[in-house]
Design a protein around this nucleic acid. Sequence first.
DNA 1: CTGTATCCTCTAAGATACTG
DNA 2: CAGTATCTTAGAGGATACAG
Lengths: 138, 138
Amino acid sequence: MTLTAEQSRERAQHRYNASLELCPARQLLEAISSKWVTLVMLALEESPQRHSELRRRIPGVSQKMLTSTLRTLERDGLIDREVTASVPVRTDYELTALGRSLLPVIFGMKEWAEDNMDTVATSRQHHDRTHAGVAPKQ
Amino acid sequence: MTLTAEQSRERAQHRYNASLELCPARQLLEAISSKWVTLVMLALEESPQRHSELRRRIPGVSQKMLTSTLRTLERDGLIDREVTASVPVRTDYELTALGRSLLPVIFGMKEWAEDNMDTVATSRQHHDRTHAGVAPKQ
DNA sequence: CTGTATCCTCTAAGATACTG
DNA sequence: CAGTATCTTAGAGGATACAG
């Protein structure tokens, strides 16, 4: 039998999910879109920092999320972790060369955002006002 | 009374959540990190497309997610939506000037990703192998 | 100080069904 | 063709307590 459009779409979905996850750009997006990664990257821009320093420099981050973010960045090879076995323990984090190579990309986004997010905000307000009745979303 | 470090951290959290959400870069990140936005933006790069064309061009997207993504992009002023009231209805989407101005940023990410995500992947594998016992995560 | 281990909540996103 | 309306689920992220 032949497939309906809906059926072939389903197959496409499964085929595509795999390739989507393999797409480098998608992977990067997922890697950096976690809530704290860019903040940590930027906090490490100038010099290595200790866990406690990072916590102070990034207000609002819980130590769970900070640790988890740092672990992920370390796993991705974007930062290095150095533990000094003193009492109490001291841990320093610093950007790797790979991590530093990502900074320009982050700055590129930052720049576009700073130049254009007010336009986006205006557009949102206008859209919400003119489409008041339908699908307010939030 | 004076605040404990933990308490002042809590206050910082609330103070900061507001400013975090106002941060332009964060907003942009949230806007484009939705699963389908970059795919839609890239699909519209060369020419306007109809809803059904986009669905074909982006395998695996459900019509719900496509519609929702398109609505968000429209609200943000990144794409325009033009409805032709024929039977059946015809709808075309195209990038706005603002939307096109974002493309270089997306390409910048894409380029870094293509150049470096294999290094990241290798780092992940190495990390997972050497840290087999502890926190395999996934 | 630098973490783990739980528990809990909230939302993005998928599945499915229906409409002008 | 181009949507809207529900229901459900997986995972991110927060709160809290404990440990080397």
